Amino acid sequence: MFRTILWFIYFWIYLIAIQPALIRVNRLEELGETAEHDRLTNQTAKKWAHALVKLAGVTVEIRGEENIPTEGSVLFVSNHQGNFDIPILLGYIDKPKAFIAKIELLKLPLIRTWMTHLKCVFMDRSDIRQSLKVINQAASHLKEGYSMVIFPEGTRSKSESLGEFKPGSLKLALKAGVPIVPIAICGSYKIMEQNGFIIKPAHVEITIFEPIATAGLTKEQSLELPERVREIIKHGLLR
């Protein structure tokens, strides 16, 4: 329990402590200095996320980093076991990235501001029209060179199981014509969800698979894409 209390105190104190960086990021955006804005935003967010994971006592093992393209944007497609998936991916995968996140995160002050600067988009899965708008917005970010992360299960599994992928969850990769990079996260549910949301140390394994090209796919290949990616991730969880 002490670790959990300490973690949440640190979580908010860190956010307050980096307010000068946020002021600078806001100013860079106003001045149109996009490259420096993006560099500082990603650097600050990665450092914060990495610190949160370390404070939780979590060790992270990553395999397949060489599979991440160094040039151009990609759509990272990952399973979703627990709340720590976002800070783990943000803090331990070098390529800058934004997330397709649940709309409830907009209620969190400071966090929503940093996420917006990262180019995250917020989806209300109960509103089909809004969801389609968000997919188009995310596809635009991909075309602009910003990599994105999506959890196509739609919610946390809170276990080792892998849920079904939501229909159309990978359409934004097809819209933007960018590669899909599958990711298997194994063990993150043990940090919180397994313990009644009490934070405990755990070991998490991240496996990054070879990118899948989406440009030029036939209609049939496009329809088969979600299940193809799901099988790759499922295989990674069985290792």
Results as ranks from 00 to 15, higher is better:
219 K>Q: 15
116 T>N: 14
124 D>H: 01
196 G>V: 05
144 E>P: 00
110 L>K: 11
164 E>D: 12
188 S>D: 02
224 E>T: 12
177 G>W: 07
209 F>W: 06
222 S>T: 12
188 S>L: 06
152 P>N: 10
191 I>F: 00
150 I>Y: 00
181 V>R: 06
200 K>Q: 10
122 F>L: 10
213 A>L: 07
219 K>Y: 09
138 A>E: 06
121 V>L: 03
165 F>T: 06
139 A>S: 14
116 T>W: 02
196 G>E: 05
198 I>H: 08
195 N>S: 09
179 P>C: 13
143 K>E: 13
142 L>A: 05
142 L>W: 03
211 P>R: 10
208 I>P: 10
224 E>F: 01
196 G>Q: 08
155 T>G: 02
154 G>T: 01
119 K>T: 13
167 P>R: 08
172 L>E: 12
159 S>I: 04
116 T>I: 14
119 K>V: 06
201 P>W: 00
137 Q>W: 02
192 M>Y: 00
213 A>C: 03
171 K>Q: 14
138 A>I: 04
195 N>M: 02
199 I>Q: 03
116 T>R: 15
158 K>N: 14
146 Y>Q: 09
124 D>G: 02
165 F>I: 04
210 E>G: 10
116 T>A: 15
154 G>L: 02
216 G>S: 12
212 I>Q: 07
203 H>D: 13
151 F>A: 06
197 F>K: 13
209 F>A: 11
138 A>G: 13
165 F>V: 01
191 I>E: 13
220 E>P: 04
160 E>P: 00
170 L>G: 10
132 L>E: 13
168 G>N: 07
132 L>N: 12
221 Q>W: 07
163 G>Y: 04
138 A>M: 07
131 S>D: 05
207 T>N: 07
219 K>T: 15
128 I>C: 00
132 L>F: 04
133 K>S: 13
162 L>P: 09
156 R>T: 09
191 I>L: 07
147 S>R: 01
131 S>I: 03
162 L>F: 09
216 G>N: 03
150 I>S: 03
161 S>C: 01
184 A>M: 02
204 V>F: 00
127 D>G: 01
136 N>E: 15
180 I>P: 04
110 L>C: 00
163 G>T: 06
174 L>C: 12
217 L>T: 10
171 K>Y: 05
117 H>F: 08
195 N>H: 08
126 S>P: 00
182 P>I: 04
145 G>Y: 07
202 A>L: 01
190 K>H: 11
134 V>M: 08
225 L>I: 09
121 V>M: 04
140 S>N: 13
164 E>P: 04
113 T>F: 11
148 M>Y: 10
112 R>D: 13
159 S>A: 05
185 I>E: 00
201 P>H: 09
192 M>H: 00
139 A>Y: 02
226 P>W: 10
202 A>V: 02
225 L>D: 12
204 V>G: 05
115 M>R: 04
181 V>P: 01
116 T>D: 12
128 I>K: 01
145 G>F: 02
205 E>H: 03
168 G>L: 07
152 P>M: 08
214 T>G: 12
126 S>A: 13
